Amino acid sequence: MTTRKTINLDPQRKGGLAKLLIPGFIILIIIMILSNTTFVTIDPGEKGIVFKRFSGGLDKEAAPLSQGFRVIMPWNKVYIYDIRMQEHFEKMTVLSKNGLNIEVELSCRYRPISAEIAYLHDEIGKDYLGTIILPELRSATREIIGKYLPDELYSTKRETIQLEIFERTKDKVEKNHLIIDDILIRGVKLPQTLQDAIERKLKEEQSSLEYEFRLTSERKEAERRLIEAQAKADANEILSKSLNEKILRDKGIEATLKLAESPNSKVVIVGGSDGLPLILNN
Rank of each mutant, 00 (worst) to 15 (best):
R186C: 07
R225P: 00
E221K: 12
G146L: 06
P150I: 07
I180F: 03
S155M: 09
A197P: 00
L106F: 10
I124S: 09
K170W: 05
E204L: 15
E105T: 15
L106M: 11
G146Y: 05
L194S: 09
T193F: 05
E159H: 02
R138Q: 12
D122T: 15
S207H: 08
E123L: 14
N101W: 00
P112L: 11
E228Q: 14
H177D: 08
P112V: 15
G125V: 12
L178S: 02
R158V: 06
D182N: 10
Y154R: 08
D171F: 10
D182W: 08
E159D: 07
L202V: 13
E105L: 13
E123V: 05
I117F: 04
E228H: 00
D151R: 11
P191A: 06
S155P: 00
Q162V: 01
K203I: 15
L120G: 04
D182R: 12
L163K: 12
Y110L: 07
L163C: 01
I183H: 03
L202K: 09
L184D: 02
V173M: 07
S208Q: 14
Y128M: 06
S107N: 15
R219E: 10
E152A: 13
D151G: 03
S107P: 08
E223F: 05
K203M: 15
L209Y: 06
V188Y: 03
E159W: 02
E123G: 00
K232H: 04
Q195Y: 05
E123N: 15
N176H: 11
A140W: 11
Y128Q: 10
A233M: 05
G146Q: 11
K172F: 03
R138V: 12
T141E: 07
H121T: 14
Q230N: 13
K189H: 09
T160L: 05
A197C: 01
E210R: 14
C108W: 04
I227D: 01
L129D: 05
S217H: 04
S217K: 13
Y110K: 14
T160I: 01
T156H: 02
R186P: 07
L129M: 09
F213S: 14
H177M: 03
I161L: 02
S139K: 14
Q230V: 00
R158E: 03
K232L: 13
S208D: 11
A197T: 12
L194M: 13
G125T: 04
K189M: 03
R225Q: 10
R142M: 12
R158K: 13
Y148C: 11
E199G: 01
E212Y: 08
I161C: 02
E210S: 13
K189D: 07
L137V: 10
L149K: 11
D182H: 07
K126A: 14
Y211I: 15
E228A: 09
A115G: 07
